[in-house]
């Protein structure tokens, strides 16, 4: 239990998907103009990363490893992720058409989010058990959502600040992102301390 807890803290904070591994930067800059949209995108991505990681683990162990097809890993994982997104979209539509109308816009964007593929490939490198891999994926995506929401909050405040004209918009966004990344570097003390 303690091992799982440490692994999850490490995945969410110390080796954060966005700020330490630099994955999912497109949605990090693109969907963080408001906290509510960032939270929606974060939760949708959390769901897809967790579900696709479960499927990826099964495919890796019972298909790719079993038949020596490791060289097809990336292509197969992309297919699994696209299927997971489609599955999610169809399920949300079936569960509640109203929810689908409200949330459906985020789902197509997740297919092209490299964080989903990145986490799946990290799982394979980690050689984890099924529950370990799923918890790692869940924690990584929680870290992703956390950073998205924090950054969206900062950008909402930035929109009210008087920023010099040359720095307005994306430039000040990148500067804030770099400061946030440095702040998250403080969590690396957890692993050494």
């Amino acid at each position: 239990m303690k091992d799982f807890a440490l692994m999850m803290i490490g995945a969410a904070l110390v080796n954060n998907v966005i700020l330490a591994r630099f994955l999912g930067l497109c949605s990090f800059m693109g969907v963080t103009t408001r906290i509510d949209t960032a939270a929606g995108m974060g939760l949708a991505t959390t769901f897809v990363i967790t579900v696709s990681s479960m499927a990826d683990w099964a495919v890796q162990h019972y298909l790719l490893d079993a038949y020596g097809l490791g060289f097809l890993r990336t292509v197969t994982f992309i297919l699994v992720i696209a299927s997971a997104v489609q599955f999610t979209e169809m399920t949300i539509k079936k569960v509640s058409p109203s929810l689908f109308q409200m949330l459906g816009i985020y789902l197509p964007l997740i297919t092209t989010n490299c964080a989903v593929l990145g986490v799946a490939l990290l799982l394979v490198e980690g050689r984890m058990s099924f529950i370990g891999a799923t918890l790692f994926a869940f924690a990584s995506s929680l870290g992703y959502s956390l950073v998205m929401i924090i950054f969206a909050g900062l950008r909402e405040r930035l929109a009210l600040a008087q920023v010099p004209r040359l720095f307005a918009g994306p430039p000040i966004g990148f500067i804030v992102a770099s400061l946030l990344a440095m702040a998250f570097m403080g969590f690396s003390g957890i692993s050494t301390g």
């Binding site: 509510d36 949209t37 939270a39 929606g40 939760l43 949708a44 959390t46 769901f47 967790t50 949300i92 569960v95 509640s96 109203s98 929810l99 409200m102 949330l103 869940f138």
Partner: peptide, 16 residues
């Protein structure tokens, strides 16, 4: 704004 969060939590957090 809260509806969006409620909808996201309902659709994604409960199954997870």
């Amino acid at each position: 704004e809260r509806s969006l969060l409620k909808a996201s939590l309902t659709a994604y957090a409960i199954p997870l």
